[in-house]
Amino acid sequence: MGSDLTLEFEFRNKRFRDAEKGLRSFHHHLKASWDGSAKVLSQELRAFLDEIAQAMVLRHSGAWPGGTGSETLSKRSGKMLQSIVDSVVVNGQTFSTIRGTIGGSMIAGVQEFGATIKPKKAKYLTVPLPAALNSDGTPRKKSAREWDNTFVARSKAGNLIIFQRRGTQIVPLYVLKTSVTIPPRLGMRKTLDVGLPYFVEKSMDAIVRAVATAKGA
């Protein structure tokens, strides 16, 4: 920077006119404690992604079936939510190499982006009805084939249903569908976007404190 160059910047509603001197000083101390500052950034990124994962757990832990809405999912086995928590990874030792990822299982991806599911081999998908589910919404059997005394018939509404004979009762177990469309309801990307500015501000505050500590050491 030349001596005749004037830089101004605003941070937290305070305007700094002598930016050149301030930035030179900050750069000097940041460079002197680069590894420590990168470590702080890595820690803040890990904390941020862990918070996003926990936000997903809290949002989608309502009891089945009432917890399912336009932007929420009922908690069933809990495996999908745990896959999100377990997916958080932060790698890298410097500012240029630090990377953080968050994802989850294939089911989490489907719930995040939405999808139309079609049968791969069979003609129909078997969508379980309440009688084929446990109280938490998980399937009682791995497949419709595991049920005894079943038959297929068309309902009054025109849907193909797998029924089971239970003595004198006829119980609907599954509805047969050629495809099922799942809307996006997880909301991970939206939560990341909302939280990102707070992460940046919190990280910079932590880095500045780390640099100040290193300067005073």
Rank of each mutant, 00 (worst) to 15 (best):
S3H: 03
L5K: 00
L7N: 05
E8F: 05
F9R: 05
E10H: 13
R12D: 08
N13Q: 15
F16M: 15
R17W: 04
R17P: 10
D18Q: 10
G22Y: 04
R24M: 01
S25E: 14
F26W: 06
F26C: 00
H28I: 02
L30H: 03
S33P: 05
S33F: 06
S33N: 05
W34K: 11
D35R: 11
D35Q: 05
D35P: 06
G36C: 01
G36N: 11
A38V: 04
Q43W: 08
L45F: 02
E51W: 09
A55M: 14
A55D: 13
A55V: 04
L58I: 11
L58N: 13
H60T: 00
H60Q: 00
A63R: 08
A63M: 07
W64K: 09
P65K: 00
P65G: 07
S70R: 07
E71R: 15
E71H: 13
T72H: 01
S74W: 07
R76K: 10
R76E: 09
R76P: 12
K79E: 12
K79T: 06
L81Q: 01
L81M: 08
I84Q: 04
V90T: 09
G92Q: 12
G92N: 05
F95P: 09
I98R: 08
G100Y: 02
G100C: 02
T101W: 10
S105T: 10
S105A: 03
S105E: 06
G109W: 06
E112C: 01
K123I: 15
P128E: 12
P128M: 10
A131W: 15
A131T: 12
N134L: 14
S135Y: 13
D136C: 13
P139I: 05
P139V: 08
R140Y: 04
K141Y: 09
S143P: 09
A144F: 15
D148H: 12
D148A: 07
N149V: 01
V152H: 07
R154T: 14
S155A: 10
G158Y: 07
G167W: 06
I170A: 04
V171C: 07
L173M: 01
Y174L: 06
V175Y: 10
K177G: 03
T178N: 07
S179L: 02
V180S: 07
T181W: 10
T181V: 05
T181N: 12
L186F: 05
L186H: 00
T191A: 08
T191V: 08
D193M: 15
V194T: 13
L196H: 07
F199A: 02
V200T: 13
E201L: 15
K202L: 06
V208N: 09
R209V: 15
